[in-house]
Lab assay of single mutants.
Amino acid sequence: GTVKVQGITIKVPNPDKAYKIAKKLAKKYNLTVTRKGNTIKVE
C-alpha cells in the first residue's frame, strides 16, 4: 500500500500497521487520516 503525507507518498507493506501509525501521528499533529484500501492519506 501507500501512505500519503502532505503530498509525499510512501509505499508500505502493511497498510493496517501503517494506518495505526498514521492515526497516532495525525492525533499528535492534528491531521486527518483517510484510508482507501492500501492507500493511506494524511492531510
Rank of each mutant, 00 (worst) to 15 (best):
K4P: 06
T39P: 01
V3M: 07
V5F: 14
L31R: 01
K11F: 14
T34I: 10
L25E: 00
A26H: 01
Y29G: 05
T9P: 04
G37S: 03
V42P: 00
T32Y: 07
K4L: 14
Q6N: 13
K4M: 14
L25C: 13
G7Y: 10
L31E: 04
G7W: 09
Y19S: 05
V5H: 14
E43V: 13
Q6F: 15
I8M: 08
K20D: 14
E43D: 06
A18C: 15
G1R: 05
K17M: 12
T32I: 14
K24N: 08
I40N: 02
V33P: 00
V12Y: 06
K20G: 07
T34G: 02
R35S: 03
T39E: 12
Y29S: 03
K36M: 13
I21S: 02
I8T: 06
P13Y: 09
I21L: 08
E43C: 15
K23P: 00
T9Y: 08
N30Y: 09
V42N: 04
P15H: 05
N14L: 07
G37W: 00
N14H: 07
P13H: 11
I40K: 01
V5R: 07
T9K: 07
T32L: 10
I10R: 04
N38W: 03
K23G: 06
V12L: 08
R35A: 03
T2I: 13
I10G: 04
D16G: 08
I40C: 10
Y19R: 07
I10E: 01
T2V: 13
I10C: 15
A18Q: 01
V5M: 10
I10F: 06
A26C: 11
D16P: 01
K27Y: 11
K11I: 12
A22T: 02
K17H: 08
N30I: 04
P13K: 13
K24V: 09
V5Q: 05
V33K: 00
T9S: 11
K36R: 13
V3S: 05
V5N: 05
I10D: 01
K11S: 12
L25H: 01
V33D: 00
I8Y: 04
K28Q: 10
V12E: 01
D16H: 07
D16K: 10
N30M: 07
K20T: 09
V3L: 11
V12S: 04
A18D: 02
T32K: 14
G1F: 10
K4A: 08
K20H: 11
E43S: 12
V42G: 01
K17A: 11
D16L: 07
E43I: 12
T9I: 13
Y29W: 08
N38M: 04
N30H: 13
K41G: 03
K36Y: 08
K23C: 15
K27M: 09
N38R: 07
T2D: 05
T32R: 08
V5T: 06
V12A: 04
K41S: 12
V33I: 09
I40W: 07
K36D: 12
P13A: 14
I40S: 00
E43G: 09
K28S: 08
V33N: 00
I21W: 14
K28D: 08
I40D: 01
A18L: 12
K20W: 12
I8D: 01
N14P: 14
K41M: 14
Q6L: 15
A18M: 10
A18R: 01
K17R: 09
V12I: 11
T32M: 08
E43R: 10
I21N: 03
A26P: 00
P15G: 06
P13L: 13
V12K: 01
K28H: 10
L25G: 00
N38S: 05
K4D: 10
A26D: 00
K24G: 11
P15S: 12
I21P: 00
V42M: 06
Q6K: 10
Y19G: 02
T2L: 13
K28M: 12
K41N: 11
A26Q: 03
V3R: 06
K23E: 12
K41F: 15
D16Y: 08
T32E: 07
L25W: 12
K27G: 08
K28L: 14
K41C: 15
P13N: 13
I10L: 06
K41L: 15
G7C: 15
D16Q: 07
A18P: 00
I21G: 02
N14G: 03
K27F: 05
I10S: 01
K11C: 15
I10A: 03
K17G: 04
K20Q: 13
T34C: 14
Y29N: 04
K20L: 12
R35F: 03
K17C: 15
N38L: 03
T34S: 08
A26M: 06
